[in-house]
């Protein structure tokens, strides 16, 4: 076992700032960890995400600048309301541009392309639909029903077996949260036509 002599982190390197990949694998086993190898510097997925983030920042920078231009200046010496947004907007766009450009450059010699299975993307989209439904139905159907469906739906999307059991957990959690936060602590949660 070569493993016995190998350290995980080189002390000298770790002393200043350890490179920290950002995806947490809270409960991933080793097989899934292997599947996640993707999230290291210079792999394709990271570079694509960096490029997308950079592009989004450029867009955000433009929005910030346009918004800043519409602000009226304050009288007297000192900084007006547009000064800081202007600096932030310019930097946002500039850093976004550099990130996107560097990622685009590195993409040409990126390591193995590793497509995310379509099924997972569908699950992510499903989660977004579920969350949006939660937001818009909350004032109509009340907290308990919505939270129960949110828990059940999210757990199933994350791959939970036995839907009936998960639904039971969801309802229990929703009712307990409602009782504790609405009745005991006094946080007024929205209620549906049935009073909870």
């Amino acid at each position: 076992m070569s493993d016995e002599r190998v350290s995980l982190v080189h002390p000298r390197r770790s002393a200043v700032a350890a490179p920290v990949p950002m995806i947490a694998q809270a409960t991933l086993d080793r097989a899934s960890e292997e599947g996640l190898r993707g999230h290291l510097e210079h792999d394709r997925g990271t570079l694509l995400a960096t490029a997308a983030l950079g592009a989004l920042m450029v867009l955000g920078g433009i929005v910030v600048l346009v918004n800043a231009a519409s602000l009226r200046d304050s009288p007297g010496p000192g900084l007006g309301p547009a000064a800081v947004p202007t600096v932030v907007g310019v930097l946002l766009a500039a850093v976004g541009l550099v990130l996107a450009a560097r990622a685009g450059w590195d993409l040409r010699r990126a390591t193995k392309p590793e497509p995310v299975p379509r099924e997972r993307v569908v699950r992510l989209a499903g989660m977004l639909v579920l969350l949006l439904a939660f937001a818009f139905l909350l004032p109509v159907l009340g907290y308990v029903v919505c939270a129960a469906f949110l828990f059940t739906g999210a757990a199933l999307l994350l791959g939970a077996p036995r839907p009936a059991l998960v639904a039971a957990y969801g309802w229990t959690l929703a009712i307990v949260v409602f009782l504790v936060f609405d009745k005991l602590i006094g946080l007024a949660l929205p209620v549906g036509p049935w009073g909870f």
């Binding site: 989660m127 999210a154 994350l158």
Partner: peptide, 13 residues
Amino acid sequence: ETFGHLLAGTGTS
């Protein structure tokens, strides 16, 4: 984190 888990696919602990 939750979105990341959806994309990564979860495993067993």
